[in-house]
Design a protein around this nucleic acid. Structure first.
Lengths: 196, 196, 196, 196
DNA sequence: AATGAATGAGGATTCATTCAT
DNA sequence: GATGAATGAATCCTCATTCAT
């Protein structure tokens, strides 16, 4: 429709569609070797339009990463809001990390890709740092009452374990499922607190 | 040897050079988007020769992966040989995984890339499975005396933690160093065995 | 048409240009070893665009073949339309086969190449079969009144003779010209019908 | 064996092996896109040696062509020797052209390829001319008694028909077999001489 | 004589990106 | 806003050919 009213507010819709298509395609391909054309087509538009909105392919990846991080954060924040005790706070983080929305096959694959992207793209690296910092500080805070000085180390340990489980889950069929993964982190946490 | 024989036995030398160059370049670039030409040049030969010996780019990656796995296994086997007690055996695996040769920046980056490659290349996936299985069985075996039935779960946990630390180490500067990483796995292990 | 529409309908134009350039270049080179770049340049575009429209080199060849077959068929159909008697029908086929447009140097060379392509490309083989079948059935039909049962054999003979003359014509300068070739087929035909 | 007696007379043996391998491979591939390496390997030697003997790929093709022509000529000469009457001479040429050795699948395919090669390689073209001239003159001579002035035209006609049947035979399965092809040429010949 | 080693030149194909409309 | 058209710059891979031994 080219002589009607200008389509207002298309930008956020288009950007959103592209971001979601990026994750879907990256997950589907299991690789960052996804073409702009693929993504754009999956999002129902021309590659040219994708460029129009994002300027460059990498920007699309970073936006997708930011979106995934946002999902994770929202989930965590939501879970934390309902938590009353420190223990519930730790559990909230774990539950959020392995929630259905965050542990979806394509999302997990995208996480792996973003680790790769972060090797070179400073923007991606910065985002990944944000995630790690936030995860660490949230966990540290929640572990403090039980662990005191050892809280930070414990948080790092749990964080690394979560990352390791993510990466393993990305492998097609050998990886743990969400429930098993969460159980594993909880077990590590309980041992940390000496309640093995 | 007869006087007129052509230059002989270059193949293993060239293959080795290419494998090492592959790891170096992948590590340097932080990405599997490394061209055959780059690798070949780094290995001191023409791209055509690289193709002559490996047939295809992917075969080079898989060979490089196999080499890295071989390094890890050799290190583990060596460390195990000196181990006398189950505890020493666990420690041997941990020490080997974070040994200078296995935890070199480029090697760690290559590991990450191989996880990516494993998303699609069945050969790579198979290799990664071999690694995971071997790590799990070695650890399980060593943990059995102390943990009994819980040995396998404990081994999986330590394995996932190791993987997580690797992936974090691949991020340029935020990651833990080898000593810290090893210490973290040891701590997790000790807690597993209830000696926190 | 809205003011802002992009340039449209280039595809058929480009495809046509590529098909014609393919024939011209194949004819010029006397070989299927013609690069996509050559053809594309001759058609006034980049190799990338040629790939965009045809997907692969072979598809371009098949399209060119189809085009040549189309030329031949159109010519034959046109000539047949004016034919009133069986004899005129036979003559029409002969005249069409050696018409200026079908017996052009590059077109004849392309025929030869397509015979080669047909050795391996099933698509090309299919097309060549279509041509042979159509030639045979048209001739058989036209020869029936005079030859009865011998019509099919006669048609095959004339068809083979036409093919032989084509192949000979493809040789730069030793081959027969169109008029001589047509005369030769007519002579064979007349003898077939016993009017030698 | 590098310090034994020098292997004398290897050259003709090697050349012969290469020539035969060339025909076999070209026939098998149905295309001149056969690599020197393929041919050399089929002939049991290294590509380098093939070059040593022929200097260039094209020379190998021309030698193979010469060989095929030689086969044809030998067959024709042998058949002619037994022929007593002009009619037997014509029949001899036809029989030789469709003899088992000349009408083998790979040989026929090679003929087609040589027509292609002749488009560009002057050496190949010259050879093909030799063949056509010899075929024409032999047939003309044999047809003279019956056809007088029309002998040359008749010879050209039969020659073109033979070529056409060859090219059709090269197509995998639609082509005529040797017996049918020979019968077709004989029929044309008989009509030429008015004995339809 | 014979070959493994080695490469330069080139070819098909892909893709992010630009542009005119 | 939106897109078809278009391309330059890669990239993988092939292959005839050369050379040292």
């Amino acid at each position: 429709m080219c002589h009607g009213m200008p389509k207002l507010g298309m930008e956020p819709i288009r950007r959103d569609a592209l971001v979601k298509a990026t994750i879907a395609e990256v997950g589907r391909a299991g690789s960052l070797d996804v073409t702009v054309a693929q993504i754009a087509r999956a999002a129902g538009m021309s590659p040219a339009l994708a460029h129009h909105y994002f300027g460059a392919k990498e920007a699309m990846f970073v936006a997708a990463m930011r979106y995934i991080l946002g999902l994770w954060e929202a989930e965590v924040r939501g879970a934390l809001r309902a938590a009353r005790t420190p223990a519930e706070r730790v559990d909230a983080v774990i539950a959020a990390s392995f929630s259905p929305i965050n542990f979806r096959r394509d999302v997990v694959a995208a996480w792996l890709m973003f680790y790769v992207e972060a090797q070179r793209d400073p923007g991606a690296r910065r985002l990944l740092r944000v995630y790690q910092r936030r995860l660490a500080s949230t966990l540290t805070h929640a572990l403090r009452p039980a662990l005191g000085d050892r809280a930070r180390a414990g948080a790092d340990r749990l964080g690394a374990l979560i990352d390791g489980l993510y990466i393993r889950a990305s492998l097609a069929d050998g990886g743990p499922d969400a429930a098993a993964a969460a159980a594993m982190v909880r077990a590590a946490w309980h041992e940390l607190e000496g309640r093995a």
